[in-house]
Write a protein that binds this DNA or RNA. Structure first.
Length: 478
RNA sequence: GGCGGCAUAGCCAAGUGGUAAGGCGACGGUCUGCAAAAUCGUUAUUUCCCCAGUUCGAGUCUGGGUGCCGCCUCCA
């Protein structure tokens, strides 16, 4: 099996063929930083991170670019509301993104270009579009001529004539055609602006992505990611600008992740229907959130709810226990010939690993891949109980460790990978609690059940849960 | 109105024409002083929204319904 990726223009899965053998260029539409990132935003980046990790696992040298659009009307409005510079608004939200990215185990992109640091490039690009008669200036504004790009609408699946009859195309008398969109907007008094051949102004939305992707990845690259809601108009317009300017194909595979829903509506900054990432992180550990997001195919819509996240927590705990147990078994496994039934176990481990990679090869199906990790966990639990007090066979354990390690790393399910995940959780229990637990153990040894139960209650009141297992007493934070 | 997507167990969710992954929950067993935790087992075989069709064979392909949803305005 080879990697197959869904392509939005042809609406079918195609075998992945890189433009340059061994290399991959990936551009991810980042945030317009007018506000705090929410879970839906981070989902897009988690999906792209998983994709990048898999491509790197396959041996590709990936160049990963994620922009920040740090100037636009909403940022300006926000700054005006608060009476501060637009720069402050942009920077504080960019910082939040970096914090959350680290928590969610995102590998840093190789480049994080800013729109405001690419103004010269943007101006040059617009000039080129005007030269080629794909754009025109009206006063201090510049517009893109939508009808000059014959493939306009191909990506999002609409045709320009239908769009005119559409109900919500706004009328703007400055434009030659209602479909045209702004490449450059003249600044009103007091607005942040940059000098240009058309007067002081700022870039329109869309153009920055065409410019920044090309400047780092070239005119034609492999993957372009972003939320499904960017398909139109953002990506359609971006594609129109880029293809018109270069005359080349722009992107080979568009990766549009499904949207996160809250209640029965899309999470969205503009209508306030969202959970800020910070709020969610207060309630759930970041690896739970990441697991939750990757436990469905990235192109499908996900409903956000705390119940779903709690389920994800239980599920991930199961996987963590499997990792811990596997690591323990790895210490004691012995090199020997396999019994007949162990041969069957080994084959099963191999088949789950194959299933994992078949799923990932099928348009990065992380949900199917996670399923294979659970199957492995169950198989191993059954195996441990089947061997009783005997030591497990090295061959089975080492294959399992290899697979588990790869799986966790590719999906990025745990910061620090398998090794960190397989560490048991006994950290930061205060002395006092440990002493109480020890006292209770002593009471139990003496079969003083009344005293033991009393101590258990006391520990519970202090917020700790006691679990008696064959391996010893475990105290957990509630 | 135009374009597109989805419909699989109580819930979430994979599924490449050939015996329906996986998780959560529930129930039962094992372990345990009792619990808890863990673990094992069971949990769609008159069945993959409905109706036709293609096929030796359809959750998977085709046609027609029905029901949800998204985009067409700023949006990850």
């Amino acid at each position: 099996m080879t990697l197959h990726v869904y392509d939005h223009v042809t609406r079918s899965k195609k075998e992945f063929v890189p433009i340059t053998p061994g290399k991959v260029g990936m551009y991810v539409c980042g945030l317009t930083v007018q506000d705090k990132p929410h879970v839906g935003h981070m989902f897009a980046f988690v999906a792209c991170d998983m994709i990048r990790r898999y491509l790197e696992y396959l041996g590709y040298e990936v160049t990963h670019v994620q922009n920040f659009t740090d100037i636009d009307d909403k940022i300006i409005n926000k700054a005006a509301e608060e009476g501060i510079e637009f720069r402050e608004v942009a920077d504080r939200n960019i910082e939040l993104f970096y914090d959350y990215a680290a928590e969610l185990n995102l590998q840093p992109a190789h480049h994080y270009p800013l729109a405001t640091e690419n103004i010269d490039g943007i101006i040059n690009y617009i000039e080129k579009l005007i030269e080629k008669d794909h754009a025109y200036a009206v006063g201090s504004d510049v517009y893109f001529k939508v009808r000059s790009f014959k493939d306009y609408g191909q990506l999002s699946g609409r045709n320009v004539d239908d769009m005119i009859t559409g109900t919500r195309v706004e009328l703007d008398e400055k434009k030659l055609d209602v479909l045209d969109f702004a490449l450059w907007k003249g600044a009103a008094a007091g607005e942040p602006s940059w000098e240009s051949p058309w007067g002081a102004g700022r870039p329109g939305w869309h153009i920055e992505c065409s410019v920044m992707s090309a400047s780092i990845l070239g005119d034609h690259f492999d993957f372009h990611g972003g939320g499904r809601d960017l398909l139109f108009p953002h990506h359609e317009n971006e594609r129109a600008q880029s293809c018109s300017c270069t005359g080349e194909k722009f992107v080979n595979y568009w990766l549009h992740n499904g949207l996160l829903f809250l209640g029965d509506k899309k999470m969205s900054k503009s209508d306030g229907n969202f959970f800020a990432m910070g709020e969610v992180l207060e309630k759930f550990r970041p690896e739970i959130i990441r697991f939750f997001l990757l436990n469905a195919h990235f192109r499908s819509q996900i409903d956000y709810s705390e119940d779903r996240l709690k389920e994800a927590e239980s599920a991930l705990d199961r996987l963590k226990r499997a990792a811990i147990k596997l690591q323990e078994m790895n210490q004691v496994a012995e090199k020997r010939d396999l019994t007949e039934s162990e041969d069957v176990v080994l084959q099963a481990v191999t088949s789950y690993r194959n299933r994992f990679f078949a799923a990932m090869d099928d348009d990065f199906n992380s949900a199917g891949a996670i399923g294979a990790l659970f199957s492995l966990s169950k198989e191993l639990n059954q195996y441990y109980s089947s061997i009783g007090d005997n030591f497990p066979a090295m061959e089975i354990i080492s294959d399992s460790v290899t697979f588990f390690t790869e799986g966790i790393e590719i999906l990025g399910l745990w910061r620090g990978g398998f090794a960190e995940m397989a560490k048991s959780v006994s950290s930061d229990i205060p002395e006092e609690i440990i002493a109480l637990a020890a006292e209770r153990d002593k009471a139990r040894e003496e079969k003083n059940w009344a005293r033991a139960d009393e101590l258990r209650d006391e520990l519970q009141k202090k917020g700790y849960l006691v679990e008696d297992s064959s391996a010893g007493t475990v105290v957990k934070h509630l």
